[in-house]
């Protein structure tokens, strides 16, 4: 029972991170109908930049350096997201679908290898800034960082929902997602909306990157790949293009993964162990695509013919 509760907690923490990253995929997909393959690398960049900033500000008190480095990472990633869209996607908005997919792969490779050139192949450890207290809850343990991750993730998601549903900008975003052409006719500046969407998604990604590296105490040039893949799976699970779906999908995937990894040994009679954890996301993805391609919350929309 304790193990079960512990896996639930771990799953929720991991799931909150997936949810934040999945939101980035889903927002871009909702607006442009495009899978932003490079999104995982933006997460990685956020983690790396914040780490570098932290080590530069090593002398400052953590209460100053942590928010500052987070802010820096967010700003950097927003610029990055803006740049990616301008360079790799916007010129191809009316090109055949294969084209932006390929440039997206290109961007993702460039970012990964740039990171490797700048930060090297080694794992970078995230400095311990605060005493990370562990709290006991009915036998399971949750520490300060994990608590902070869950709380921050939920706050950010709530904030995003407010922006999308309560502001002019949000209305413009929803209009463009509904029908780009019509929105343009109504005087919405589509390019601006798209840029802002990328920047918002990237800001969430930066925060997620910092969360992951704080949680595991590590960052690495390759960390974005698998994280991106899983977050995408989360978005599909929830129904790609649907914000609530991305959050639900993220949390669910986190839970599935951690429960799966916790019990796979028992299920397979010891044949497979937790090193197969990464396989679950993929199985979930395939299962969703077979049984409910529109995802849990997605509605089935016929492609316009």
């Amino acid at each position: 029972m304790e193990i079960f509760l512990q896996q639930i907690i771990n799953g929720l923490v991991q799931g909150s991170v997936y949810a934040l990253v999945a939101l980035g995929y889903t927002m871009v997909y909702g607006i442009l109908g495009l899978i932003n393959f490079a999104h995982g690398e933006v997460v990685m960049m956020g983690a790396m930049v914040s780490l570098s900033a932290l080590s530069l500000m090593a002398g400052l008190p953590p209460l100053v350096s942590l928010p500052l480095s987070l802010l820096l990472a967010v700003a950097f990633c927003m610029l990055l997201g803006y740049g990616i869209e301008r360079i790799a996607y916007r010129p191809l908005r009316h090109a055949p679908r294969l084209a932006p997919l390929i440039t997206a792969i290109g961007v993702s490779i460039v970012l990964q290898n740039l990171a490797m050139l700048i930060w090297g192949r080694d794992y970078h450890s995230f400095p311990q800034l605060f005493a990370n207290h562990a709290h006991r809850m009915a036998g399971a343990i949750i520490n300060d960082i994990q608590l902070a991750i869950v709380v921050a993730a939920f706050l950010m998601m709530a904030g995003l929902m407010l922006v999308v549903h309560r502001t002019r900008l949000g209305r413009a975003m929803r209009a463009v997602a509904e029908n780009q052409h019509a929105a343009q006719l109504m005087g919405v500046d589509v390019n601006r909306v798209v840029s802002v969407t990328f920047m918002m998604g990237s800001a969430l990604a930066a925060v997620a990157g910092v969360m992951v590296s704080a949680n595991y105490g590590l960052a690495h040039y390759y960390m974005g790949f698998l994280l991106g893949l899983k977050a995408f799976t989360a978005a599909v699970l929830g129904g790609i293009g649907n914000l609530r779906g991305a959050m639900l999908g993220g949390l669910l995937l986190g839970l599935i993964e951690s429960l799966g990894a916790g019990y796979i040994g028992d299920i397979t009679g010891g044949f497979m162990g937790s090193q197969y954890q990464d396989v679950f996301a993929f199985l979930v993805l395939i299962a969703v695509l077979i049984f409910r391609p529109s995802g849990l919350l997605g509605e089935r929309l016929a492609e316009r013919a």
């Binding site: 440039t103 290109g106 460039v110 290898n113 050139l117």
Partner: peptide
């Protein structure tokens, strides 16, 4: 090695554009 991958990435983008 990473230079090569970097070039690949840039080439993919440029060719598509």
């Amino acid at each position: 090695e990473s230079l090569r991958m970097l070039l690949f990435g840039i080439a993919l983008i440029l060719v598509m554009l």
